[in-house]
């Protein structure tokens, strides 16, 4: 479904990704983990063409998207929805208008259908009847839910989650984790979740790719990741920095 081949990316003198390769299969949930600043979000943005790699390739349904101009990426982007770390709601629009936006862009103009699909999407993220609120009136958790509703309303085949629980309290994080899992079951979508939250990983992942020093240090099933004796993985899972007081 989605595959990266030897993806490399630098920002100025800093090389963030060094030949990162992994693949994502239909229907599975891959969690991309790693320490802060290791390039997890950068990988995600390459998968939807928001960034271009210095070298390497990204294949969606077997076709390279790296060389495609911005306007040719529209078809690829309609297959893939993305939940941004900040939710990235359009703050000049109400919740309902935010959700209607992707539908209108896809050519849906029947107001009755738009309203029905908005209500369905809000129901799925446990925020029924919140169409009239403005993004500024929402809490962090509600913003993420509305962002997720906007992502799923266009019925993508793949959903990319960029740090879905960052900045949320543990209870709200747990409810977002359950929401991700529930949507996977209900919509049967393929998912990539970028996170450094172990609870999210253990709750949502079928497989894990762990980025370390710009490379895909580990890719494998979640059980294998959890039981690994590799010191880099073990330190990350246990939250050990190696520093002393």
């Amino acid at each position: 479904m989605i595959e990266t081949r030897d993806l490399s990316k630098s920002f100025g003198p800093v090389q963030v990704l060094r030949s990162v390769s992994f693949s994502l299969h239909d229907g599975e949930t891959l969690v991309v983990m790693g320490r802060s600043g290791c390039g997890k979000s950068v990988v995600l943005k390459h998968l939807i063409g928001l960034m271009k790699p210095d070298s390497g390739d990204v294949l969606v349904d077997g076709e390279s998207i790296v060389g495609l101009p911005e306007r040719k990426l529209t078809d690829v982007r309609r297959k893939i929805g993305m939940l941004f770390q900040s939710a990235a709601l359009f703050d000049s629009m109400s919740v309902g208008e935010n959700l209607a936006f992707p539908l209108r862009e896809q050519g849906v103009h029947d107001e009755k259908e738009i309203n029905t699909r908005i209500a369905e999407a809000l129901e799925m993220v446990d925020l029924p009847g919140e169409e009239e609120k403005m993004p500024a009136d929402l809490s962090g958790g509600m913003r993420k839910r509305v962002g997720l509703a906007r992502t799923i309303i266009g019925r993508p085949r793949v959903i990319l989650y960029d740090e879905p629980t960052t900045g949320l309290d543990p209870v709200t994080s747990d409810s977002i984790n359950h929401l991700i899992r529930r949507l996977q079951r209900r919509l049967r979508v393929t998912s990539i979740v970028v996170t450094h939250d172990m609870k999210t990983a253990f709750h949502c992942a079928d497989r894990v790719t762990f980025l370390h020093e710009g490379r895909a240090h580990f890719t494998g099933p979640i059980a294998e990741f959890r039981d690994s004796t590799d010191p880099v993985l073990a330190d990350f899972i246990q939250g050990r920095s190696g520093d002393t007081d």
Binding site: G49, R71, L73, S86, A88, F90, D91
Partner: peptide, 17 residues
């Protein structure tokens, strides 16, 4: 403001130039 709050990336991800 739209740029730094990822709203422009959100536009692009929704297929809008």
């Amino acid at each position: 403001t739209m740029k730094v709050t990822e709203q422009i990336d959100a536009l692009r991800s929704l297929g809008v130039h």
